[in-house]
Amino acid sequence: MSVGIVGYGANLPRHRIKVEEIAKVWGADAPSYKKGLELREKSVPAPDQDVITLSVEAARNALLRAKGVNPQDLGAIYIGSESHPYAVKPSGTVVGEAIGAFPSCHVADFEFACKAGSEAMFVVYGLVKAGLVKYGLAIGADTSQGAPGDALEYSAAAGAAAYIIGSQDLVATIDDTYSFTTDTPDFWRREYQHYPQHAGRFTGEPAYFRTVLGASEALLKKSGMKPKDFQYAVFHQPNGKFPMRAGKMLGFSREQIETGWLVPTLGNTYSGASPLGLTAILDVAKPGDKIFMCSYGSGAGSDAFIYTVTDRIREVQGLAAKTRDMLDKNVIYLQYGEYAKFRRKILKAE
């Protein structure tokens, strides 16, 4: 039995802030940040947007593309994020109610830094394959936090990607998967802390690169495939440089990575990052295309997947808003003061 993606959808906020606008507030050198991060601007959630609202809109787009799937047939809803609006009350309870999936449904929120979205995809894939659910909904979404003035503030962005996974009417099969996990303390957020902390350059070689390369090399070996066998590849994209460098180290070309490389104008959408890149690839993919995906979550772990696009992709690509259109069209630029208000960075009197 083939298991794979039946419908997919994305949602991005319309607001953006440029690197220059943040840098001028902190006296930082914008050109060096832009060059160092390979990032020009990032998305900013409006005050009335959060992981739940972005997830609902992404799920609605996924349902539009999974035409024929009744939300009542979704046996599981898993949302991966590190910015769930409630500490106790799953985001999936609101999302499932909004899309009409309840009450016969298993719901859980997942957390694993930036790989919580692919984690949800892995678990739903397993449940469908085991025959426990007919369809499941996996979402990666974040309205990520970066402390004012910290390097993360230039990249911490917002967005959501949703996948309906099943075994009928597939737009892409999931051919193989592999997960790689270690205890690597490169980034964390303690209980009651508003902003995460990170270990600076330690987040690179011993964390991101060791883990992404570890998962990717193992999956390529397990599947017997080589980078040249794929039309597209998407890696977790905390900045513009890391995914391009990891891809090059593995033997993927810039052309294979660019379609799903959203970070230069989107920023790092954390749990949404590689799942959102995959939506941009599916928006333009052709039947028979092979796609390689590898997420990364600090702490640390990676989930790698291999997909094959089916003939049905052409029927569904135009049924909902495309990711690049959401990224490039109708954007509203913010000044730092507006951004600080939107992100509740201003301390007010009670």
Binding site: A46, D48, Q49, D50, I52, T53, V56, E57, R60, A98
Partner: peptide, 9 residues
């Protein structure tokens, strides 16, 4: 023309 979106009220 407008469309409805899911938001925090």
């Amino acid at each position: 023309k407008v469309k409805l979106e899911f938001r925090r009220i």
